[in-house]
């Protein structure tokens, strides 16, 4: 049994946390990895805190229990941090990535985070500029790959381009916008 990397996504209903988990899994599959992506289901609706999860491994994944000790957490909406325990279950050297214009040190201080590697990226700002809407999930993918090295960035970008081309045949500007957003977030993600 190989090592399984577990990721938890925090977002609000409608923000694309589930989609982000699916996209990441699909990209990892494209690199020949074994994957799982699943949301936490409940009565949540638009705006309510939601979670989604990934497992990524070189070996087939058989586990079908919940993810409770992820090594990576992605927070799509930093305002959640006040109501949801976003660091729950993370190990000492775990990675947490926030969608915010703030600096990692400022976030660490404001949320009293001890240990962990804290990263931030203004994914919403990038999305608004490049895609024209606040859809932070695709730029967050770019930042996530930068800080974790989970996947090969260029291959992921290529893979995404193919999928977006399929989905948005008649909207080339959406494809270009998404790709630029991923690239920008990859470059702009900040560490402490």
């Amino acid at each position: 049994m190989g090592e399984i990397i577990e990721i938890r996504w925090h977002g609000r209903g409608g923000q694309g946390a589930k989609t982000a988990a699916l996209l990441l899994a699909d990209a990892a599959l494209g690199e020949g990895k074994h994957i799982q992506a699943f949301p936490e289901y409940g009565p949540e609706r638009m705006g309510a805190p939601v979670q989604a999860f990934n497992r990524i491994s070189e070996e087939p994944i058989r586990l079908h229990c919940q993810v409770t000790n992820p090594s990576i957490v992605v927070v799509l909406d930093t305002t959640l941090a006040g109501t949801v325990d976003v660091v729950a279950g993370l190990p000492e050297d775990g990675i947490i990535l926030f969608n915010t214009a703030e600096e990692p040190a400022a976030i660490r201080k404001r949320l009293s985070i001890k240990g962990l590697k804290v990263f931030t990226v203004d994914a919403s700002g990038i999305a608004k500029e490049k895609i024209g809407r606040d859809v932070p999930n695709t730029p967050m993918m770019g930042a996530l790959i930068k800080v974790t090295g989970l996947l090969d960035f260029d291959r992921m970008l290529e893979d995404n381009k193919k999928k977006l081309t399929k989905k948005f045949r008649n909207k080339p500007e959406v494809i270009a916008g998404n790709i630029e957003a991923i690239e920008t977030a990859y470059q702009e993600v900040k560490s402490e």
Binding site: L22, A25, I35, F38, P60, H64
Partner: peptide, 12 residues
């Protein structure tokens, strides 16, 4: 299949 555990979980 097991509801949500399999039905809504994406796997290879």
């Amino acid at each position: 299949t097991d509801g949500f555990i399999i039905s809504h979980a994406m796997e290879a």
